[in-house]
Design a protein around this nucleic acid. Structure first.
Lengths: 340, 340
DNA sequence: CTTACTATTGTTTGCGGTAACGAAGGAGTG
DNA sequence: CACTCCTTCGTTACCGCAAACAATAGTAAG
């Protein structure tokens, strides 16, 4: 139990354990790997030796011998924002539960080169699979180009014939959000979208258009932001000048926050004069002024699914059919029927 | 350049490269490790062979042979919030620049057992060092108890005789925040602190007390939150009823957001009736209503320092003297002189 | 009492690298 | 010209583990 103190004492190996337990190294290995035909007595001796030497198996050696690293690589372009961070959390939890470790590489910039480098890096660490948290089209694209040696699962909504990503049905979320506004009686509903190049930007715009046209409303051009509160604030000012519109559906909560501020500064009250719906349900959404009505995404579940999917691939099982998760509406105080 | 297609083609090894380049495996190894006495001609042949076989060194084998994994382990109790996530980002970036990979383990619950497990896990992956993102006393504590085989650097503000953590001077940040309010003319300044058990909770309370007593003000008991916006909202209601106080310094931005909402609902205007200062400067702080005056922490720098510190330890250099970073005040619109 | 298994353990080999050592050839030196 | 030293390679052994194969003892079956 007591740890080795002080300097460079070589860590105990299986041979040391074997010697102490008076068995062969292979037997120690068997105990460690839950081989069934071990006498309880022998097992106990080995276990006790392991414990008293404080032996810990050397993953590198095991990986070399088995070419299984029990490690999943994660490539993320961003895990500072709530969504990706939470997904990463889910990935890591699920991975650990499955006995896997997680090695992560982040990309400040995502293009073919950086993607390839990241994959090479992970490949040389012999990761058994890779989860790519890739909100951008370019990133998702890059995933296909490169490896077929290592199973790769993408968390995005980019679809391709090659492999299906784990995703949330963004368009459906959009429809739900927009319909909520329509049901409240809004007729002119604008949209603040994410930037071009992000798959979810597209699909959210699409869902908004769909819901609008179903209700025979015209969807004017969306305003484009870049996911940040700042961009929401900027387009929010423009929105505040639009006196035909009575509601806006914003593609994420952070931009919605900026919109809220711009509206406030322009003297337009939410929800009396203007209804606002966001997307994501970040933990802070409930404490904005006013508390934000939004679409909740279960990022953790998304992350967990990624692991299920890579694991299936790793074990050569048929690839998981990834029916997209359906997000749900959380009604708070930023939406109300229009006044007039 | 072209990748191996399809099924189970054994990845090329150094021997394959050696054969193709007509040299010994050892020479390939030398080229890979920048050994100086290699004829340019030989080096080129090897490099070309590597390229044409698309050879990638096997980290597991290298680790086994050298017992250097070129991997840093990270233990985090939380990387969903902005601070830890950003620190993790800094760690990962700096690690990569130094040629290290990052393997992460998160703890949903941090006590001696989970800490030890995490360290064991990382140790068996032969990480060369560990960075612990440990805001809680308990976690920071656990760091000492365990390993002296592997260098561990803690990102926290828990001090001990054994090793100094990488930290930001929380108390100083508190003083700056509080002095800002004092300078504006506030005489009754309350404090919303983080929960017990977090080192920064303590030191922020301390800084607030210091600044208050310097100015010969009485610091009434702090209100205690748990870092979440929700808890800020709860204590904010209480705060709204305190009509002697004209200002509050909140230990983090998220709680400050909750306070803002509570104040708003109680009809107390910010900053006219009540000034609010936060801590962290999360990206959203600038887009709250009103934009929040706060103390900015450079989490990325903190993360980078952690890597510098572990690296020093790993290379047997004298441990870095970690002069704490000094945060700075960002004045926005949630603070103003008291009315009367 | 053989024979045929089965349960249990040991021995050998190899995973893909690098460290340590050795050796050949050329340059410099007295 | 013999001797030493440096450059540039190759050879051997080993890192810590598990796969493959072998061996032993017991047990059930014939």
């Amino acid at each position: 139990m007591a740890r080795q103190q002080g300097s460079k004492v070589r860590a105990p190996t299986m041979a040391d354990v074997a010697r102490l337990a008076k068995v062969s190294p292979q037997t120690v290995s068997r105990v460690l790997n839950d081989y069934e035909f071990i006498k309880p007595h022998t097992r106990d001796r080995v276990l006790q030796a392991i414990d008293s030497l404080d032996y810990r198996p050397n993953m590198a050696a095991r990986t070399l011998a088995t070419s299984r690293s029990r490690t999943i690589g994660v490539i993320a372009t961003d895990y500072l924002s709530y969504g990706p961070a939470t997904a990463l959390w889910g990935v890591e939890q699920a991975a650990r539960e499955a006995g896997y470790g997680v090695s992560i590489v982040s990309l400040r910039e995502s293009n073919y080169r950086t993607m390839t480098e990241a994959l090479e890096r992970l490949a040389s660490q012999s990761v058994e699979g890779v989860v790519m948290i890739a909100p951008q089209d370019a990133t998702a694209h890059a995933a296909f180009v490169s490896f077929d040696e290592i199973p790769v699962v993408t968390l995005s909504s980019y679809e391709s014939g090659v492999h299906k990503p784990i995703m949330l049905d963004s368009a459906e979320g959009s429809r739900i959000a927009t319909r909520h506004l329509i049901d409240l009686g809004h007729r002119v509903i604008r949209h603040v979208s994410g930037p071009a190049g992000f798959t979810v930007s597209e699909s959210r715009v699409q869902g908004w258009r769909d819901a609008a046209s179903e209700a025979r409303l015209v969807a004017t051009e969306p305003l484009v932001g870049d996911w940040t509160a700042e961009s929401g604030y900027v387009v929010g000012k423009e929105l505040a000048r639009d006196h035909r519109a009575t509601a806006v559906y914003v593609a994420n909560d952070r931009m919605a926050q900026g919109v809220l501020l711009a509206l406030h500064e322009a003297g337009r009250r939410v929800p009396e004069d203007f209804s606002v719906v966001g997307f994501d349900d970040v933990p802070e959404a409930a404490y904005l002024i006013p508390p934000l009505t939004t679409i909740r995404q279960d990022f953790t579940a998304l992350g967990r699914r990624c692991i299920e999917a890579v694991l299936a691939l790793i074990n050569g099982e048929p690839p998981l059919e990834p029916e997209p998760l359906i997000p749900n509406l959380i009604v708070r105080q930023s939406t109300a029927p229009p006044l007039q």
